[in-house]
Design a protein around this nucleic acid. Structure first.
Lengths: 132, 132
DNA sequence: ATATGATGTTAATTTTTCTAACATCATATT
DNA sequence: AATATGATGTTAGAAAAATTAACATCATAT
């Protein structure tokens, strides 16, 4: 299990979260109702919060202290999410480029390599016009 | 809050601990009865487990799998505890020696230093017999 | 002055956990 | 082989914690 997964495990009942965040149950449930958090549930429908949920609650608290209202907080979180997706796409593409490069290298090696028993390099044969 | 404190926070209800450790409530409560763990309690006397408790439960599980009985496990934990105390004492003494050395250095500096306006070093006066 | 947003409070219900007692099952002892 | 012991399962009844829903309050914006 990696760090991401660990931080997203549903572990904490609302009572503990109340203590850790110094928020009331009413506040926590209201923020969920407003789609600011999405805690997991037990079979019996009791909320279970992750570290990520708790961090988010603490941030909500900070932003409310700064007189930002729930709509504002929702927008902030939304923008961050988009930003995050943007980054993931860039990363994804970079990764793809890397593995493409790798692949080209491999193919080139395959094709130019003088294997034992081969009388001449392929690059001097049929495929020579593809690699310069 | 440091790492030690964080790992000792009472956070998890027994249901979560059951999932994380794959132990039954009966087993967990029995190990407490046998003094292998000492989870905290809520006001209402419900158990709250820390990361340390969970690690310990996982170790108990391992040792039981190795056919070591509860008495054996208790002894292992006890010895580890003594070992730990031993180490703490050694560390404590080392620390003490260090600060003693510091103190002696300071006193020496104080006493041997020629302050502006002083006609002669103290070390040549009344205290000279203490520092060689 | 009124409407709205965020939170408090309460009641009834459901879920989770508690303790205590008795049951089971494997392993060690006689 | 019969019996004792240690670890765990199961059950029942009680207590604690969490849920939803409704109504109340209070500050702030219109």
């Amino acid at each position: 299990m990696n760090d991401f997964e660990r931080r997203n495990l549903p572990l904490f009942p609302i009572g503990i979260v109340m203590e850790l965040t110094e928020l009331s149950a009413r506040q926590i449930r209201y923020y969920e109702e407003q789609d600011l958090i999405h805690p997991a549930r037990t079979k019996g429908r009791q909320r279970l919060f992750s570290f990520v949920d708790i961090d988010r609650l603490l941030e909500i608290k900070d932003l409310l202290d700064k007189k930002i209202n729930i709509a504002g907080i929702k927008e902030i979180f939304l923008q961050r999410e988009l930003e995050q997706k943007e980054k993931e796409i860039v990363l994804e593409k970079a990764k793809q480029r890397l593995s493409d490069k790798d692949l080209r290298k491999k193919v080139l090696r395959e094709v130019t390599q003088q294997k034992p028993g081969q009388t001449h390099s392929l690059i001097q044969g049929d495929l020579s016009r593809f690699f310069h």
